[in-house]
Write a protein that binds this DNA or RNA. Structure first.
Lengths: 338, 338
DNA sequence: ACATAGACCTTATGCGCAAAAGGTAATTTA
DNA sequence: TAAATTACCTTTTGCGCATAAGGTCTATGT
């Protein structure tokens, strides 16, 4: 490994001078010396050691991307088209700005926290973080953070919170289903803590506004692994007989379900209408193509990096709570009835 | 940030003693002191600074994952289900073994190399690397490397090379198509340098073994971005009239194409049969479900980490050239003709 | 002629950690 | 009883880098 000292020795200079050239502080070095140093750096293709730099500057140029996930979902996490797209967008933007990303996934938030601290990351992007976990992170990690899809409570709003207008998205989707004559709607959600809770609220509101009421039994919580489990899928299939429409909180669930159901003779949308959320690649390639709520995942990722790097450079973000617009995308998975 | 020195000062000990406790070298420290130190470490939730450790030990516990990709594919790279799954598997395995991963993507291999060197990564996983680029990496990076889907030439076989039995996969698929009566087969590939070249060879061999011959015009090279471009898709659509089957080197291409073609009135498989490669989630959810060649991407990722970490710990890998098995998966996208 | 200011260097220091080398008692061994 | 060993510490050094604090020499002003 070639170091600044190597370069300095070869040139008969001090490390300071070489360092100054590297950092473009050329006002303090003669033109001639600058040229000599630059030539040698080029020749030996000098690359600084980030660890060393990180030690002195107390900044690592690393952006941490943390998402809590259950053990049984580890491998599927990044593979999930939604996360993949988001991560890809974040990665591209971070790299374009000369930073690096480090991905942390674990089911224990403390493990994530330990990793973040051990690397001394300059800023953190938290994806889908729940309240209790966020509080833990906040108590130990004092640098800038951006939350994505995290619905943190108001009192922690000193951190940028990027998400969708989830309530509106769900409201519009439900309204659309109602307009198409559906009233027996099952709502399939991940859990009732984060984003999906807000979506459910939007759904409820739309139902009420149209004179319908929601019942607890119509809310189906998808536990991890259920979509890959024959028995769970079967259960949902049996429930489907009571409904004319399934409203899912993600394209992934909708698509997996459509797949299973149509394999078992349920015709979509003739027997059952189906909607998703996100507008992934998947929703476009299935048949019937999925009626869903579009969000701009790339924009989400890009924006979060922009805001975070801004905060790292100590500029106040233009907004603390960003709600990106959603758009109803009508395709072929919903049938008009009645 | 709490450091070893902080801890030592609070206890009236030297940093060495604290460091020894941290590293479990308790034979050199009295029981009583060990207990005192451990209590304080726990209390303050001490986390080592990896940068500092990396400096002294000359190892970073980072595994670099590098893939070259063109500028116009940046954001789609990780989002691609194949890469997502692979990356997810690698990430899970690396984390389970106490290492970290850093992802490097760029269109210029020198930029990747610079990043790898700057972080002093302990080992490198190169995905889909072409020969010339690999030579460049090899000339500057001297630590263990594992190649995935890279078809490096024999002389560099000191590095573990993990891939599929691509030739066999393509051979079997072509044989199947021939058995179903197809002879007018177009072969859609990414380029003729890496994996796809070997697949094409397998295709050719099968054709020849069955008394058919391949012509240059039947080989369609998919340039980046083509699958997202109306004009290119239209071109391919027009070509489709000359064939009874399209054999694609990835599920992604097959699915995107199926999508476009069926939107334009081409019935699959009635008018055109279609096959993929990989057996992604996508291939299962499209209709008709895609006939494809299955590979175990998770196994691929896991194995590459296993081998790499083995090499880092200086054990010779059991194999230098790993060809994972492939399996023909027959679904509904190929029609029997004649 | 002497102070002052720049231009262009170097020396010294410390980031947090690991490990080699060096202590000092208490305990064992021959 | 002296030498050797052991148990349990500390001091010192250096990883590669950035930077504060010092140098020395020349040009400029009065």
């Amino acid at each position: 490994m070639v170091t600044i000292k190597n370069m300095a020795d070869m040139l008969g200079l001090s490390t300071t001078t070489v360092s100054n050239v590297i950092h473009g502080k050329t006002s303090e070095v003669s033109q001639k010396t600058v040229a000599r140093v630059e030539k040698l750096l080029e020749e030996y293709d000098y690359v600084p050691n980030i660890s060393a730099r990180s030690l002195t500057q107390n900044c690592s140029r690393i952006i941490g991307v943390a998402m809590k996930c259950r053990k049984d979902k580890y491998e599927n996490m990044i593979a999930d088209p939604f996360f993949g797209e988001l991560l890809g967008a974040i990665e591209a933007e971070v790299r374009a700005r000369g930073y690096y990303i480090m991905i942390y996934t674990a089911d224990d938030i403390r493990e994530i926290l330990r990793n973040v601290l051990t690397w001394n990351v300059d800023g953190l992007i938290l994806i889908g973080m729940l309240h209790d976990d966020f509080v833990q992170v906040k108590s130990r990690y004092k640098k800038p953070m951006v939350l994505i899809d995290s619905y943190a409570p108001r009192e922690v709003m000193k951190y940028v919170n990027i998400g969708l207008d989830d309530e509106r998205g769900a409201y519009e989707m439900t309204s659309y289903l109602l307009e198409q004559g559906h009233t027996a709607i099952a709502f399939l959600a991940d859990n009732m803590e984060g984003v999906d809770y807000v979506r459910y609220k939007g759904h409820q509101k739309a139902m009420e506004d149209h004179g319908q009421r929601t019942q607890e039994k119509d809310l189906i919580i998808i536990r991890p692994g259920m979509m890959e489990q024959e028995s769970s899928l079967r259960e949902i299939w049996e429930m489907s007989k009571d409904y004319t429409a399934f409203m899912c909180c993600s394209d992934y669930y909708a698509v997996m379900l459509m797949n299973y159901l149509s394999d078992h003779g349920v015709r979509i949308p003739e027997d059952l209408s189906m909607t998703g959320f996100d507008d992934n690649l998947m929703s476009r390639i299935v048949r019937p193509a999925l009626t869903t709520v579009r969000q701009d995942v790339t924009q989400k990722g890009k924006l979060s990096v922009e805001y975070l790097l801004g905060m790292i450079q100590e500029t106040e973000p233009p907004e603390w709570n960003v709600r990106l617009p959603v758009e109803l995308v009508i395709r072929g998975s919903v049938r008009k009835i009645g």
